[in-house]
Design a binder for these strands. Sequence first.
DNA 1: GTGGTCTAGACCACA
DNA 2: GTGGTCTAGACCACA
Lengths: 125, 125, 125, 125
Amino acid sequence: MIVIDYKDHRSLYQQIVEKIEELIAQGLLKADEQLPSVRQLAVELAINPNTIQKAYSELEKRGVTYSVKGIGNFVSSDLENVLEKRKQTVLQKLGDITHEVVLLRIDKKEFLNECSKFYEKWKEE
Amino acid sequence: MIVIDYKDHRSLYQQIVEKIEELIAQGLLKADEQLPSVRQLAVELAINPNTIQKAYSELEKRGVTYSVKGIGNFVSSDLENVLEKRKQTVLQKLGDITHEVVLLRIDKKEFLNECSKFYEKWKEE
Amino acid sequence: MIVIDYKDHRSLYQQIVEKIEELIAQGLLKADEQLPSVRQLAVELAINPNTIQKAYSELEKRGVTYSVKGIGNFVSSDLENVLEKRKQTVLQKLGDITHEVVLLRIDKKEFLNECSKFYEKWKEE
Amino acid sequence: MIVIDYKDHRSLYQQIVEKIEELIAQGLLKADEQLPSVRQLAVELAINPNTIQKAYSELEKRGVTYSVKGIGNFVSSDLENVLEKRKQTVLQKLGDITHEVVLLRIDKKEFLNECSKFYEKWKEE
DNA sequence: GTGGTCTAGACCACA
DNA sequence: GTGGTCTAGACCACA
């Protein structure tokens, strides 16, 4: 479910955070579903438990999950809110990239064309 | 010309590298034009010369500039190549973002609409 | 494993970079093997950690190694690619030298003879 | 006759030294022939006269040229000696490259084949 | 003056 | 523990 890529430029805990957010966006993790325990995931990914802990704390801080002491971590009940926040983040990044596109003087037509092609490509997978 | 933003999440030398690449993309720095000297820019930005040096080395490794010992650093003669590379990088990032957009099940029409709006917004500035 | 030669005309960090590339070419460092930590190697070679850092950054930029924050530096997984690049560089240098040989009007037979002798000499070591 | 390449990794004075040695090897500069004056060459190459001076001093130190005070710099009378020294230098470099070739485990047959191909290529020019 | 290397030492995020 | 960034300051070759 989660694959760590050591050559990724992002830190390990960030990869976990983003991967879990993606799984939720894809509907593979549902509201109030329990996440694997810190220890279990640490063993599974062959990673330091502190790193998993940090990822889970970050997710909780973002409101994506909630923790119940002594029991575990769960996906938020209010998925709509979570997805809306994530959408804002992604659109923010899209805006930044578009800025770079404009600075490079890429034609609007070409730009939209690329966007469309990328969209179709990912849609198929 | 170059402004350092201490709140930026990027490191100082990275900000310099990317800012200079932008200035080239915008045509404000031309082929074979001389960059400010390491020491001069260090004073101007109130930054340690080593940090400027690191930024200039990075630019040279990327093929964006070349340095002549005892004389200075210059914008690459082959700007076309530089801009093409940068375009590839930006498109790569655009593709990644689009992937996230698709995972979030954002409608294609809405997506392209956002792209278009962002483009117009930046175009005006 | 790595020996610094202060009489060498190359800078310290360059010697380290090239030595590590050689160790990989010789098969003494294998794919995904961990390199000594920056601090450890610094102590071992009695060199400032910044210099080791610079060497490791250079290796990463060349695609020879990759680094994982908080864990360490590792030899690239795609050694084939690394070795192929290195081979291209060496052949390039060989071509340059051959140009000088031709300019000096050294006989082809003599040239190939020298090449052969050198090859045998290094082969034995 | 002499072209300075600012993108060359070698320093300006080194480029001049090596270019003049090449011209001698090619027979384009003959024994006791006068070199252009420091000032003249400086203007021609749009370079600091100190740089030309340094190149000429280096050539004299190597025994490639001699200077007559108040008159100018001249190619050595004993070209045979000059060429022999240069040959030794070039062979030394060839040996170093061959070492790298062996470390890369390039086949002897392939190596000699490359040498031969390079030789023919430069011979034609 | 120019770029480039190196040391010493501090500080940060991450595992 | 790990890598990475930055400052302060020195020194070198080169133009």
